[in-house]
Amino acid sequence: MSHHIVELKDAYFTYPDGTEGMRGISFKIFHGESVGIAGANGAGKTTLLMNLSGHLIPTKGEVSIGEITLCHKTRQEIRRKVGFVFQRTDDQLFMPTVYEDVAFGPVNLGLPENKVNERVKNALEMVGCYNLKDRPPHRLSEGQKRSVAIATVMAMKPDILIMDEPASNLDPRSRRQLINLLNTFEHTKIIASHDLDLILDVCERCIIIRDGKVFADGPSEKILLDESLLEENGLELPLTRQFYHLKRSS
């Protein structure tokens, strides 16, 4: 297996009010891997993602992306490598038009104008939204917003794509389109979601988080079919598998 790109070594994170978001998490993720993160509400998924992307810095232990260990000095550099797609698209898309929003990152990278234009065009074409470039975000459907949000991140050419609940608020067709889109990316992907079907469809590996710790880590096919393990974590079998079970048991 290739060189690892993400590594957590016994990482802790405690919020100022004393809430412990991570209590000793360790794992490695390798180049090109796609990893699903699942767990009940409040298990620490979002805290974990924020620590992976440099928005929070572990209070104890170590997070490293590639060669760089995350600390106050390196957080800008880490943010450049890690593309973070937020759960709420309205928070992610803050510029007045789609074009400007996608261009925001490349402009901040200090690229010349023609390079910016090229990146914006490529990123929007990748998600199939180039025709929306002059629209203001409030005139987009939730599915379009999600695609554009992904484009804003792709325009930064990140090494790793991190997504928090990418399928929330999407109708079934938009969700399916999103899954197809994600499967075309060859990036390292880390996706936190309650949507276990999505994880099953996109990620070969799944990590279950519980009380700020890694509870299980292994191939999605194995973990997401382990009914008792899922139930213990407030999760249910992926819908497609429930159906499968029904068929088998009848």
Partner: peptide, 13 residues
């Protein structure tokens, strides 16, 4: 605050 985080994530300076 979340918007600010999103801006930082894309290199806001």
């Amino acid at each position: 605050e979340r918007v600010y985080q999103a801006m930082l994530a894309r290199g806001f300076n």
